[in-house]
Simulated assay, not measured.
Amino acid sequence: MQNNGVVDFYPSQIVSHTIEKNIFYFNSENQVILKIEVISDAILRIRYGTEGALEPDFSYAINNKYEGSYRHLELHETDDSFIIETKDVKCCIDKSNLKLTFKDIKENVINEDEKGFHWEEFHASGGNIVKQSKHVFDKEMYFGLGDKPHSLNLRGKRLQIWGTDEYGFEKDTDPIYKNIPFYMGLQNGIGYGIFFDNTFQSFFDFASERHSACSFWAEGGEMNYYFIAGPH
């Protein structure tokens, strides 16, 4: 995700929030909306919108009739953050910049934002390149993304999601046929998954450009992903 002179924009501080049962909205001073929907005790859907609005809610991957369930749900507030708590996960939202930290109920960090959500204007499409970067833990490993003829652990790789008829592909050829924007992370015996629900050409950087960051981004659409807490 090289900068090449482009300007990245970031959310500013939270100025208001609302709650609709299992859905939480957080609004920033510079008109970024963060929507967090609790699907289950272990699955949270994360959406960001700019200019004060979210995109129409449509997915080729998710059944829109599915209704999740959860056993426990609370919202707490501290001086610095809001905390959404389920039976399995705590999602901490930084009031100053909308960055997220996911923890288990014992306060172990499962996954946390590095730069977090940010975006740049993409004049070729008239929209935005939407970006997300996560902190990389020591010895963290990454797996997934469908057909990727690479080492099983994808750490150190930059890969793209863009179906391509690549007959006679070899080791490290990318992209090829089957592209699934889902990866699993494993750090310190703690597992999790992230599904990036965006059909634009997208990219995943597993500590390739910067050793401290795992990033994913798309050349349009919305930053819309599911965080799935795994076994540990």
Rank of each mutant, 00 (worst) to 15 (best):
M184E: 03
E37T: 14
D147N: 15
D113H: 12
A53Y: 08
I161W: 02
L152I: 13
G191P: 05
T18D: 15
E140W: 03
P149D: 05
T78F: 09
V109L: 02
H123N: 07
E112K: 12
G5V: 09
A53W: 06
K157M: 03
F182T: 13
D172Y: 13
D104N: 12
A124E: 12
S125D: 00
V136I: 14
Q2C: 07
H123F: 05
Q2G: 15
K134N: 03
L152D: 13
V130Y: 06
E29G: 09
N3C: 04
Q187N: 11
I129V: 14
M141Q: 15
D113E: 04
F227E: 02
L44D: 01
K65P: 00
L44R: 08
I23F: 11
E121S: 02
E20A: 15
C214P: 00
G193L: 08
K148I: 07
E114P: 00
I36L: 15
Y60C: 06
V109E: 03
Y10W: 04
D80L: 11
F195Q: 04
N30F: 14
R71M: 10
G144T: 10
G49E: 00
E166K: 10
M223N: 13
G220V: 02
V6N: 15
P231G: 12
I93R: 05
S28V: 03
F169E: 04
E121A: 11
T101N: 01
Q31P: 11
S125V: 09
L54Q: 03
E222L: 07
D8W: 12
I194H: 05
P149T: 01
D88C: 05
K106M: 04
F200W: 11
E209F: 10
G156P: 12
L54I: 04
K99W: 00
E85G: 00
G49N: 06
N224G: 07
H135R: 12
D138C: 09
V15E: 13
K87Q: 14
D104C: 05
G193Q: 06
G156K: 09
D80T: 09
F196K: 03
F182C: 06
I93Y: 02
G144A: 05
G127N: 10
N27H: 14
C92E: 12
Y70E: 02
V38M: 07
D94R: 03
D41K: 12
Y66G: 01
E67D: 05
G220I: 00
I19L: 13
L152Q: 08
Y60A: 08
S125G: 09
H72T: 04
Y70I: 04
D147G: 13
D147R: 02
